[in-house]
């Protein structure tokens, strides 16, 4: 008689690997054999994990076709079993799995489309937070503004791709009825997936905006983040960039490295944001 742990380990092996050598002789059988009974469970495990992947990756399924998707899912489930009792968590490494698949070699854009779908999936369930307090921000001493650090919305994700992943995503939405061909030569995109309210949005942002937001997301202050962008584009308009991403709720919190005791109102339209160090010299 197996211990409970031995039974569960052996049962688990037979669920994931039909070729396993475990006999599970302690599973009762009659007209319906042991293997047929285990198959009911195996079938259910694979079908519910496959459904979870279909839920998170509808565009990938559309691109590769339902039958091929199921066979890819089967391989993925065996190699990367679920590690959570919450099915919404399942499939985080699917893009990496796709990038290693020989069968999709020619469709090198698939992993980036999968990354976009996973970002959308994560953002859908992420935390809700209120917009940044402009009133509080206005109280920051202009002399300290270059030290400001901004936090991105928990329901936001930055993605870059050398393929037009957003265009591919858009033409593969159920509601899309136009021309489905995508010219891959139009090149890559920088994307911000954001859920300010209930529905996720995907914003096609510029390379500079992406660099700037990515730097803020790494907890770098305004001055250092601006430097990164201004090195490449001295014309970068910091004020309008901040306004855009504060008003669309990408930037939702701010903090100061050294909280000064004097505060002076920041007037909207004043170009009192710090200039990059290079511009100053």
């Amino acid at each position: 008689m197996p211990s409970l742990h031995e039974l569960q380990s052996a049962f688990a092996d037979t669920l994931l690997n039909p070729d396993t050598t475990h006999t599970l002789s302690y599973v009762a059988q009659d007209k319906i054999s042991r293997d047929q009974r285990l198959f009911i469970y195996r079938n259910h495990v694979f079908s519910s994990l496959t459904s979870a992947l279909q839920g998170a990756y509808p565009v990938i399924e559309r691109l590769v076709g339902a039958a091929f998707f199921r066979s890819v899912a089967r391989g993925y489930i065996r190699l990367h079993p679920s590690t959570s009792g919450d099915l919404e968590q399942y499939g985080d490494s699917f893009a990496e799995y796709l990038s290693g698949l020989k069968q999709v070699d020619e469709h090198t854009y698939l992993p980036d489309v999968a990354r976009l779908e996973w970002a959308y999936h994560r953002v859908y369930f992420a935390a809700d937070v209120p917009a940044l307090s402009l009133e509080m921000l206005a109280k920051v001493d202009p002399d300290q503004q270059h030290q400001l650090r901004f936090g991105l919305h928990p329901a936001s994700q930055l993605l870059r791709s050398s393929y037009p992943s957003l265009r591919i995503w858009q033409v593969n939405q159920k509601t899309y009825s136009g021309d489905q061909t995508v010219d891959l030569s139009i090149g890559g995109n920088h994307l911000l997936v954001l859920r300010p309210q209930l529905d996720p949005q995907i914003h096609d942002i510029t390379h500079d905006e992406f660099t700037f937001l990515e730097s803020l997301a790494c907890n770098k202050n305004i001055a250092d983040s601006l430097d990164l962008v201004a090195d490449v584009n001295p014309e970068f308009d910091l004020t309008s960039c901040l306004q855009k991403f504060i008003s669309n709720k990408t930037l939702v919190i701010f903090s100061l490295e050294n909280q000064g005791d004097q505060t002076r109102a920041y007037r909207k339209g004043d170009r009192t944001w710090p200039q990059s160090k290079r511009q100053k010299t």
Binding site: L4, F11, H44, P81, S82, T83, G85, L87
Partner: peptide, 25 residues
Amino acid sequence: SWSSVDGKYFNDLLPLPYTEEALKH
């Protein structure tokens, strides 16, 4: 039921043996 072992989840309601050991556990 049980649905995971050795860190792997099957997201299904798998049957337990109805033994004294399982009852205690």
